[in-house]
Structures are given as C-alpha cells and as structure tokens.
Design a protein around this nucleic acid. Sequence first.
DNA 1: CTGTTAGCGCGTTCAT
DNA 2: ATGAACGCGCTAACAG
Lengths: 328, 328
Amino acid sequence: MKRVSIKDVAREAGVSISTVSRVLNNSAPVSDDLKEKVENAIKKLDYMPSNIAKSLRKGKTGTIGFIIPDITNPFFANIVRGAEDYLRQRDYTLILCNSDQDEKQEVKLLETLISKHIDGLLFTGTGNFNPVLAEKIERGFNVVFLDRIIQGISASYVIVNNSKGMYELLDYLTVTGHKEFVFINGNKETFSAKIRYETFKKVMGEKKLKFTHFYTNFSYEAGYNFGKKMKKMPDAIVCGNDLIAYGVIDALEDRGFKIPEDVSVTGFDDIPFSKHYKPPLTTVRQPMYEMGMKAAELLVKIIEEKQINTEGIILEPQLVIRGSTRRG
Amino acid sequence: MKRVSIKDVAREAGVSISTVSRVLNNSAPVSDDLKEKVENAIKKLDYMPSNIAKSLRKGKTGTIGFIIPDITNPFFANIVRGAEDYLRQRDYTLILCNSDQDEKQEVKLLETLISKHIDGLLFTGTGNFNPVLAEKIERGFNVVFLDRIIQGISASYVIVNNSKGMYELLDYLTVTGHKEFVFINGNKETFSAKIRYETFKKVMGEKKLKFTHFYTNFSYEAGYNFGKKMKKMPDAIVCGNDLIAYGVIDALEDRGFKIPEDVSVTGFDDIPFSKHYKPPLTTVRQPMYEMGMKAAELLVKIIEEKQINTEGIILEPQLVIRGSTRRG
DNA sequence: CTGTTAGCGCGTTCAT
DNA sequence: ATGAACGCGCTAACAG
C-alpha cells in the first residue's frame, strides 16, 4: 500500500509542507485560500498523517502497553476493557500482551514494548521483584501497577483493599456459624494471594478457629483437582478467586456433596458469571472495570503531567452474599 | 526518560553509526575489534534500538490491529488469545480495540490504526458494508476477517462453518423428538447470525416443523429478558450463542420451569463456562483459540509474502451434547 | 501569513 | 572493512 505523505499533499495543493502541517494541526494561522486548497488536496489524495513519523519527531507515541497474565480470565478481560475504554477516549491505543505469569516472558515483553516507545505501561505481573523493570522505572519509565504490586519497587499502583475484603468475608462467615475453614489460595508469588492469606491467618488466630491453607493457582482446574481429593469437609471453603470456587463446587458436587448444605464455598472477584452460577457464588467483588479505568487514568495523568511523585489508589471491595454459603 | 540512541553508542564506541548499525543487524562484516567495542558500548549504555525509527525507515511496524466487539465476551477473549500467542511468537505486537459493534467507532478505530501504520488488521465487526474499509483494502491494506465476513468486500477470512453446526444441532434435536422450536438469535447485522438463521429456516421447512425466530443481541441480558416474557413453551429454544442461552435458562428457572424437562435450551460457541453451567449446556463448539491463531497466521503470511490472492479458511464446528437438552 | 531548514533514530547507498 | 550522507514523514524554530 503506497502511503501518501505530507509532501504529496503539499505538491498537490501547491504549498509548502509546513503550511500543510499548519492546517493539519491548527498550529498557526493560515489564509482561508490556502487552507481550502490544502483541505481539497487532502481529500483528493485521501491523505492520513503518519503517526509514526509524528512519534519520532515528538518522542511520544500515544501507545500504552498492558501486560497481563491471561486475557481469557474474565477478571483480566474486564480490567482491560475498563482501561481500553478510557484510553480510547483519550486517543491512546493499547498494546495487549499475555504473559502467563512467566517472568522471562514478562521481561521480554517489557523490552519489546519499550523498543516500540510506549508512553507508559500497565502492569499486572507476578509479584516477584523484577530488576529490569525496576531499572526502567528508576530511569523514569512510566508504569502503573495494577492489582499486583511488586515489593521493593516504588511506583504508582491501583489495587483493591484485599485485606478488608477478606475481613468482611470472614466476618460474615463466622457470624453465620462457620467454625472450621479451608483456604484454597491462588499463586503463591502473587501479591493479592499473599495479602489475603495474611489477613485470613490473622482472623483465624484472633477468633481461634481451625483452618488449613494451600497455595495453588488461580484456575478452575486447580479448584477442581483440589475438590476431588479433599478428605474431611470443613464448614467453609474459602477460595482465592471465583474460578477456583467453581472448580471446587463442581468437584464436590460430582462427589455427591451439596453446596451449601454440606459445606459453604466462597470466591473472590465476582466475575460476571458468579451471579449466575449454580449455586450463585458468595464472593468478594472487585471493581474490575473501574480498576482498569482508574489505572489508565492515573497513567495518562503521569504521562501528561510528568509528575514525579508516585500515587497509589486503593479501591474498595464489596462482600456479595449469595447462595453458596449457609446462613447459619 | 532520556532514550539512548545509536549515535550515543557510536560516540561511546568511537565508531560511526553505520558500524553500530552493522553489528546490530549483522548486515555487513565488521572487524572483531570494532564489533567488541560496539557491543560493550551497547551494554554499558543499556541501548535499545528504536523500533519506531526503524519503522519509519523500513515502512513496517511489526504491529497488528485487532478490532473486536468486546473483549469481555469470552468468545472474543479466547480468539484474541489465540491470535496474540501466534503474533508474539512471530515478533508482532497486537493493538486491541473494542468497537461495541458500533460502525462509527469501527471507522474511527480503523483510521487510528492506519495512521499508526499497522502492518495488518484482524477484523471482527458488524457485517455491514464498510466503504472506508473497502477502499483501504482496495488499495492493498492487509486485512483478515475473523468470524464475520462482510459481503461485497473481497478479502481473506477465517470463519466457522456455521451452517454445518446448525444442521448438526437441529438434526440431533429432531432425532431426540423436539418438534417445535424458538430461535433467539443474536444481532441482526451479524454475518454468523444471518447464516445460522438461513440454515435454521431451511431445516424447519424441510422437516415441516413449527418455529418462530427473533433477532436480539449476543448477550446474557437479551436472553434473560426474552426468557422472562416468553409465553408458550416450545420443545426447544435454540440460542444464538451461549450467553443468550444462559440468560434464557436463568429467566425460565426463575419462573419455575425446569431445564431440560420442560424445555430444551441450546447455545452456540461453547465458551469455557458452558461445560460447567447448571445444567451443562448443549451447544455447538467453535474452535475459538484456533480461529484467532489461524487468522493471525494467515495475516502474517499475507504481510510477509505479499501474496495478492485472498484466501478463506473455514473451520469445523462440533456439536457438544450436554444436559440442557432432553434425550427424547 | 508563508516557506526553508534542521533534526527525531535508523538503514542504506556510495565512496573510500 | 569503515564512514559520510541521504531520506523515511513530520514538527518546530527561524527567516522573511
């Protein structure tokens, strides 16, 4: 596809390229006469400015990178949607990358994105310290951490108050008479998994409740496998996210257990399907769309205002009580 | 973030920029001595070539655009994952855009993407004729249509044999004794919705079955609303996709109907949740991940081999029989 | 108001 | 084997 450039337009209109540039960007007054000529030429040639030349010139691409574990997980899909909606409206464009939580992949993607001159990065990675990323941030690379913070790196972030969510969940569960717990958590390295476990353990200790805890990973299969081989039933099974809860419920039902009569099961996230699951899932809602949107908003702010001090946004979770838990 | 350029490396190494370029791309022999100097300078400065300058020079960005209705729909999320996996491996990068099936938005996104010099476009839009897109294609713009073809535009595509899927579904349904049908279809403009309806109508005619048909849109809500106000129950409710089926099932169950005892319900797509839905959904599987991957593969082939003739890939659907339909 | 010109970072002749 | 110089398409600074 032969591209038509500003030069072609200038020639067609019989003016200089700077004049074309001026009418294009309204960056300086141009006589009506020439302006019209230029506009006609643009239409005639179906000219479209090259953003990449513009980027080279201005040192800004209007492109944001987003590294997430897996777009196939509705939790991330909804976050991405929130981010993209905001960015689109602000005339930014989103490069999406799936990392599968692989650290090597994360680094590689980061480098690719940087060499593509992204203006900023939305990052949801493993929680492990990433020296490459840390160094870039040190040098002024714009990053907003989303849902998952990395300890030891000082940067802006948008997260949910996981601790509070867990508190409210356990509060409800204990009030409704649950006394013995199993916590099937997600990936061990993950920031949110860690926080939730900390809070969980603390509450268990305070209320002197019996519990066991396991790290697995944030997937349906992990929950299903666990549910298949569980021996003794506790009063409640707390799951690291909704997908795990789905798996546990299905496995348990396959084995003839009734949810919530035999055991209560809870999730975390409240992805759209949880409302319609059978039984509908008691879970802690994370404002996914809003997380994505806020993070994008924060990132754009950082980019455009070049503010140096980092900012953290903590969103509120919300306990959603549905049919997968006994009411006492 | 001050970027370090090839010039800085050249200065640091005490050579010319062309030499640096040569060791970078291995495009011409360089003495071991200088090569080492350059490599050291690169490491020392943490130099990373600018893809955008490279793009400007070479007229190729290594970036692919993908316009879809909504990443939040698992059907698209899985397609996108397939595409991104392939592209990442081929060193392409994916710009994701949600259009919400809005034609104005589609045009705007298209223009944005073109001005960002994408090498090619994966397109899943409304099925309506789009003059802007048609014209770009005319001029040699690389596009692969995915899941949804536009009539009147000659371009490459990857679709699923919707007709066959519908045939097999109805065949199963009639064999198991269903005689009266309601088809709650998706968006009217959509290619796949049209094809499925055509086949549906044909089969109904051939087998002299009673039926009604409605276009709604491909969402849970559409199905739910429809289910809420349905009067007379047919033997089977055929839905345009799984989400619609979920909605119908939930609405009907809310009203006290039993699925499939009172009425069979089927979906289309087989998104990952359908297997675990209660009741598990009888549906027609579309190979989503594969669709995305094949389309990306085809697009890259078109880009790199500059082949002119268009190519169409038709994937096979698969009937998946589960618990939401009566067995006769 | 308008045109000329100098880069943005890179790959590629063309000399040497 | 190496370097100088040009140009990809564009904006901004400068000159008129």
